[in-house]
Design a protein around this nucleic acid. Structure first.
Lengths: 262, 262
DNA sequence: ATGTGAAATATTGTATACCAAATGGCAGTC
DNA sequence: GACTGCCATTTGGTATACAATATTTCACAT
């Protein structure tokens, strides 16, 4: 594995020739930021399992940095809700209960509804044009069942729509919730790429036509369907885990310290 | 000023006698947390002005701790959106534009609307009872024009309603946005305590009666009115600042480094 | 075998010292 | 006044140390 430091150095060097003239300090990506990104990626893609312990010195060694950037990265991820820490016990990848997943999706439905409505209302020609070409490209990819490409287009659709609501708080929250939904899929998120695309295309059409209420309705329904699917997957995984006794490794190395209990 | 360390030690000692039997490590409040709280308080109450620079070593000396906890506190506050940092330039108290205030309030309207609706739908007897006694106490305080007490009751009202929606993401976001709105008031937030109380009491009544739509409507309107008032205050402050040339100290010591500009 | 408790070990939270890179001013020069 | 070179400050990061806790081990009793 290439070290974080090498990656930072390289990105800095590349930036030197591609970016606008900004101060060189601003170009430099801090190790903390690099570690944060690396860890976040490992968590949302499932390489780090929920409940897994995150030891500072172990991570420091893994990334070839000192403990400070790691501590700071863990703090940042805690603020994002991806890791949970308890005092003197350290950090773990956050464990989300099914109940919490339901709450997450419930709110995401409402925020995507708002976001779609606002986007359709505020939409300008530039957005409509971008969406139109995105839809064309996506339909093409859908005909070819090009899932990889579709996944990328799905992401681009979300980025476009999020930014177009012209409300940075709403955008931030929607993105944050969406990321957490993706996290729940972990690896298996290509499966629904085509269905997802079709729903996205319908929403895009509604936005292009300025039909705010339809865009809102379709968005909410889209998230609801996605959410139902995610919850079904989770339940199934849970059932499987419960079914095969013994062979399953413990998902979280949770051991209650006897002395602390009353 | 009492040191942070003394405060931490005391809170730990007090907790020893008031809390449930948990491990002693969990009782210990980290210096990082203490510094974070202290800084957050200084920012939202306006003791630290927007745009003000936050030097690590200066803060470390002020709180009598090393730079590490301070760095981590600044990072945490950055995640909360209270401070802004640029690489190699350090942290400043975040400066919120009027445009951003409008976006903040716009989203807060929608989330408070959602929250009130959900709370009215999910409300159980315990909540109704708590709200009823809160309303009685508040009306009493309002008759006596006890602003100090009313402010506390207003805060309690929000806490009650936020928690009752049974959606931790919604609760978190609503609380976060509300805190930022309070921040904009800074010191002068007792002024509207009585009007605020009356609006809260009406919302409480709607929740008690299970009238979700009325609760939602009143909540949205309440935030809208509060927001209009905040924005008016800000505009006025802006006008005043613009009017009195020379005498006003620079609100942000922002100096563009000539060499970085094209 | 199984549980218990004390000792051994590991980890976190914090401090300190130190360094390189970058920024922010300032004095001198054109 | 605008540029230039220089220097003090500040940040981001490393390394090391250490006390307070947590976790694991392991001998021992049941």
């Amino acid at each position: 594995m290439r070290t974080i430091k090498a990656a930072v150095a390289e990105s800095t060097a590349v930036a030197q020739f591609t970016e606008q003239p900004v101060s060189v300090g601003a170009r430099h990506q801090s190790l903390q930021a690099a570690v944060t990104r690396s860890l976040r990626d490992a968590i949302v893609t499932g390489r780090l399992q929920p409940g897994e312990r995150l030891r500072e010195s172990q991570l420091a060694q893994m990334f070839q940095v000192s403990r400070n950037p790691v501590r700071e990265a863990l703090l940042a991820l805690q603020a994002e809700g991806l890791v949970a820490t308890s005092p003197r016990k350290g950090a773990r990848v956050r464990l989300i209960s099914e109940e919490e997943v339901a709450e997450l999706i419930e709110l995401r439905i409402e925020l995507e509804r708002l976001n779609a409505r606002k986007t359709a209302q505020h939409g300008d020609d530039k957005l409509r044009q971008a969406l139109t070409s995105l839809v064309d490209e996506g339909n093409e990819a859908a005909r070819g069942s090009n899932r990889e490409h579709l996944r990328e287009l799905n992401d681009r659709f979300h980025s476009l729509v999020e930014a177009a609501a012209h409300n940075r708080y709403l955008s931030d929250y929607v993105r944050s919730l969406r990321e957490k939904t993706l996290w729940l899929f972990a690896s298996a998120r290509d499966d629904r790429a085509i269905e997802t695309w079709n729903e996205h295309a319908a929403i895009a059409q509604a936005i292009i036509h300025g039909d705010a209420e339809l865009a809102a309705l379709l968005s909410a329904r889209h998230v609801k369907d996605t959410g139902d699917w995610v919850q079904a997957q989770l339940s199934e995984a849970e059932r499987k885990r419960a079914g095969s006794h013994g062979s399953t490794p413990p998902r979280r190395e949770q051991r209650v310290h006897r002395r602390t209990a009353p």
